[in-house]
Design a protein around this nucleic acid. Structure first.
Lengths: 237, 237
DNA sequence: CGTGCTTTTGAATAGTATCAAGGCCGGTGG
DNA sequence: CCACCGGCCTTGATACTATTCAAAAGCACG
């Protein structure tokens, strides 16, 4: 169950990349006062597919996966998000955009309802512009992903999923290498394939010395070589 | 070659959905004065892949395809755009986002340079918010497209490409049916497949009475049945 | 009326998903 | 502490879909 702990105010929050930090001081205080904050434990749904969202979520700490499942039951990871990222914003129109958000580890998340958010947009030009830029960049990445996924082999898609996961939710071990704790199934849901293919690709890469395994945990041995596999597609990570 | 004709000012422009219309009257006049306007004939590049873009383009009339080709030479249509749409905006950061825009028919396009644009953002809150919403919606569509393309069959992707093309660049004939003049190759570049598969799928659909052909031009006989093919994916068009 | 490009259709090939079985690991209870 | 159980992971065999290659037909252009 989500835990209500003491709320960490925007003034004392150390997540410098959070968009809310772009508002002016009095608005930062106002948002800090009216925002809702919850700590979600690992595996917990922050919001579910299908249920309407009346505001936006800003991640203060922790990692989150944004998922979307089709009626045939297949689930898909739309993107990964970490501190400073924004999610759940639907604009004004209540379109049907069935995504849910699940905490990958304990995640502290702030919620701003639509009234507060829209008011903030109207009174904080730089805040609005920053969020516009964020969407613009994400759109570009998504379009590139679209384009490249149409021509990548499965191996390349899996390589992409591993590198992408490493960037957002990877943790450095004592050698400075990036460790990824996502399951094969979750990587498959990023790459748009199935767990078996992910497993096969990981085996190949292990034999080639690009990765090593620590139990089920994936360790990237050679990040440059991983990028090299994706060199044809380098624009979109 | 692009033609410089008499500029149609923002005040006399009839494209009501253009974002520039969201600015206040004095800014509308200012943008109208400082914007650059060019009429591009069919097939002409409005901007090319690789060359940096120092502003944003707003389509006043005509249709445009946004293309992106990979180093292996495969070209891909990222999206289609028509009057009222915005394109080419890169935000502030000069990232590498190699897309080009090609006129599908004679297209009248307005260009606003970054200084003018950014100044307009700072002084027209509603303008900025509208563009933010636009990107937000486009991002959602792109993510849905990503998700569904990972699980659609080629036939379904082609059906999507035809319906999508019909929505944006389709023209009604005297029976009220939608006609599409894109080539098989172009449809393949939307669907993420090749011209042969598009041709096969079109043949199937012709046999099933969903489409008819007028020379090379595709005519949608039964739009409901086309949508029906995509009913599992209906969120994202 | 020919030339070149697009479209259509067929056949061969390659790649990927699916199905199935066995192995590994962590957790639980005796 | 050990045995068992269940879930995740790995690997192989098979079937199928889609891409590629190739060739013929159709259409538009000079």
């Amino acid at each position: 169950m989500p835990q209500k702990t003491n709320k960490i105010s925007c003034e004392e929050c150390t997540t410098t990349s959070c968009f809310v930090k772009k508002t002016n001081p009095q608005w930062l205080a106002k948002i800090s006062e009216f925002k809702n904050q919850v700590v979600y434990p690992k595996g917990q749904y922050i919001f579910s597919e299908g249920s309407p969202v009346f505001g936006a979520y800003f991640i203060q700490s922790g990692d989150v996966k944004i998922v979307s499942s089709s009626f045939s039951g297949r689930q898909n990871i739309v993107r990964l998000a970490k501190n400073g990222h924004m999610m759940g914003h639907k604009g004004v129109a209540k379109e049907n955009y069935p995504v849910g958000a699940v905490a990958l580890n304990d995640a502290r998340v702030c919620f701003l309802n639509n009234e507060l958010l829209y008011d903030a947009f109207l009174n904080n030009t730089h805040f609005t512009i920053e969020i516009m830029m964020f969407y613009s960049k994400e759109l570009r990445k998504s379009e590139m992903r679209n384009k490249f996924f149409a021509q990548m082999t499965t191996d390349e898609k899996v390589a992409y999923a591993i590198v992408y996961a490493g960037e957002i939710v990877g943790q450095k071990n004592n050698k400075g290498q990036i460790m990824i704790t996502l399951s094969r199934q979750e990587l498959a849901q990023i790459a748009g394939t199935n767990a078996e293919q992910v497993s096969r690709t990981i085996s190949h890469m292990k034999n080639d010395g690009l990765l090593s395994l620590d139990g089920r945990c994936i360790c990237i041995e050679s990040l440059p070589e991983m990028y090299n596999l994706l060199s044809e597609y380098e624009q979109f990570i």
